[in-house]
Amino acid sequence: MSETPEGGTPLADEYPVYLPDPVVDAAMRMIVELSAQLWVERERRMVTEQLLESRGLLSREDIESFKADPTQVAAIKAERARFLEDVFKELKRIPVGPTHSKSG
């Protein structure tokens, strides 16, 4: 619980836990995050496919047979790290210990 600068309702801690089990609480956050990541990818794929189709630039087979060069591999790995941080950052917020931390 955090006090405010001048009265009012005390503020919740920075990382409150709302569900009875903090691991389930983190899992719920990750599910929402995964849903967001899934939507990001789906939106991009839809745009890409529509552009490819409308401009006649690439076929689906070109995408399937694509081989990344070292620079492209590095870029993909950097994006993967960003993805992992987005989804699994919640793991760092699970409190240590068996007690249930209530949001209050």
Binding site: T4, G7, G8, T9, P10, L11
Partner: peptide, 15 residues
């Protein structure tokens, strides 16, 4: 209103 005050950074709103 209570939740928003405490968990959404609105400490003065309930008052």
């Amino acid at each position: 209103r209570w939740f928003d005050a405490r968990h959404n950074g609105e400490p003065y709103s309930q008052d």
